[in-house]
Design a binder for these strands. Structure first.
Ligand SMILES: NC(=O)c1ccc[n+]([C@@H]2O[C@H](COP(=O)([O-])OP(=O)(O)OC[C@H]3O[C@@H](n4cnc5c(N)ncnc54)[C@H](O)[C@@H]3O)[C@@H](O)[C@H]2O)c1
Ligand SMILES: NC(=O)c1ccc[n+]([C@@H]2O[C@H](COP(=O)([O-])OP(=O)(O)OC[C@H]3O[C@@H](n4cnc5c(N)ncnc54)[C@H](O)[C@@H]3O)[C@@H](O)[C@H]2O)c1
Lengths: 228, 228
DNA sequence: CGGATGTTGTGATAAATTTCACAATATTAG
DNA sequence: CTAATATTGTGAAATTTATCACAACATCCG
């Protein structure tokens, strides 16, 4: 019943997880997989998977399952990763250089084609085949290179400023690592990755372990699995 | 109505966001803030904030708002970050070294006190004051240093193995950066940060921009703000 | 003092999301 | 061919999460 209007963000995240898992399954040589087995591997209910997919079409074969390759292609199309995206990286510090060095992004179609910094010691240097540019060149480069996605790996103090520069150049998708409350205009998608928040969630869990354990036991009694 | 039993994970993430924002507000010199203004700054409804807090107690003053410092202390206690946590880092590669160099974790009470790798060229070297150890020493070190949290920054192929080693040593909280479907036993909290997934969500948004725009317009008509 | 205003905490309500239940259909074994 | 088994896609139900609405109370200002 292909209807893209009411797709939950959480469902999109799951599609990406399905895709990664399908990649692993493909490597193992499996050609067909049921929603049940896929769910087992990644810790979701089979119905969740089928429901998520049903928003976009029918990809399975009744009584059989899903052709791994076909489903992967379908999800890739849905996510828009059946193409290349040019990405700009702002901030060539510790985190920025790790991101730049990571081959996984390119493998998935995300090419970091430009890196910006304001540190004169870095500007002009070539890292991973890319010359680090001054932030003043951002607007020009974004247009020239058709950059659609920006990654923020600068200090929190300047993150909003860099986001504004990027969006004013037409960048409509931003992945932010700076622990700051960034705001963007409508039509711009912002995703925040706050690693301190991740650790704080773990701290909460450890601090409140007993209560959580009770919850886990209740869930197990109701025959639920691991949550991923 | 202090009842920690039915707290949604999403609420915990928000508490962490509130705390970071309160830190910024404190730096600005503000001593009191209303849920309304806090909500404006971080893109949540005031009622969401009040509801989240109400699970843990009453922290505000009617007609006045919240004392910034007091609320921050209260949330820190709730999250369990009113203390220090010793953290182990597995994988001293590109990402691992960025995490190790980041002062923000220590500032928030998360001390990376041990780093493990299996690369002979790295083992024995001292980074940021910490000697990189062979993974075979993990069990001993985890006990000696009272390590409660593990960070996985090794390749996906070995990530499950390292997770198993950590949990078998009693580590009950794991932050995983490897793009793999990790499973953990009950009583262990696992948080996955998959950066490729983050980019794929942005790709989805860009690919389906038109539909999303419609959605945004609908929300604005209903007086909703930015989602953060 | 008293009315206007501001703000919290929370029960009730609404909305979103997940899970259940099952019809429909394919496959397999005999 | 038929019965047994497997699996999808989806409407309905259940559950979870977010928002609304408002009583209760504090503060401000004349
Ligand atoms: N390193 C981590 O593990 C980690 C973890 C969590 C969050 N973060 C966040 O990610 C961001 C980057 O972290 P990092 O460790 O790489 O910091 P870093 O200090 O190593 O790097 C920041 C880089 O940004 C550059 N920069 C500063 N102002 C700039 C500007 N106006 N224009 C362009 N470039 C500018 C600096 O020159 C530097 O190269 C920070 O906001 C940090 O809080 C990092
Ligand atoms: N670098 C990034 O920006 C980035 C982005 C997304 C995901 N990741 C994921 O994070 C993880 C680390 O990425 P990276 O870029 O730092 O990789 P990397 O190759 O630079 O580092 C991996 C490190 O793990 C060590 N290692 C390998 N096997 C080990 C074992 N059995 N025991 C102990 N150590 C072992 C290696 O020696 C190496 O030092 C990977 O799973 C990667 O997919 C990284």
């Amino acid at each position: 019943m292909s209807d893209k209007r009411k797709i939950a963000e959480a469902a999109i995240v799951r599609l990406s997880v399905y895709n990664r898992a399908l990649g692993e399954i493909e490597k193992e040589g499996l050609e067909i997989i049921s929603s049940d087995e896929l769910g087992d591997r990644i810790g979701y209910h089979a119905t969740q998977i089928r429901k998520d997919l049903s928003c976009f079409g029918e990809f399975g074969e009744v009584g059989k399952g899903y052709f791994v390759r076909d489903l992967r292609d379908a999800i890739s199309r849905i996510l828009g990763v059946d193409r290349k995206w040019n990405v700009a990286l702002a901030g060539a510090g510790h985190l920025g250089s790790a991101l730049l060095a990571y081959p996984g992004f390119r493998q998935r179609g995300f090419n970091i084609v430009a890196v910006f910094d304001n540190d004169l010691a870095k500007i002009g240097k070539k890292w991973e085949g890319i010359v680090i540019q001054d932030t003043s060149e951002l607007a020009k480069t974004v247009k020239e290179q058709d950059i659609r996605i920006g990654i923020i790996a600068v200090s929190p103090q300047v993150s909003q400023e860099i986001v504004d520069t990027l969006t004013s150049c037409g960048v409509r998708a931003i992945l932010n690592f700076a622990p700051a409350s960034i705001t963007v205009g409508e039509g711009v998608e912002l995703r925040n990755v706050d690693l301190a928040t991740e650790l704080e969630c773990l701290s909460y869990f450890l601090t409140n372990e007993a209560e959580v354990r009770t919850e886990v036991l209740r869930k197990i009694k109701n025959n639920n699995g691991e949550g991923g």
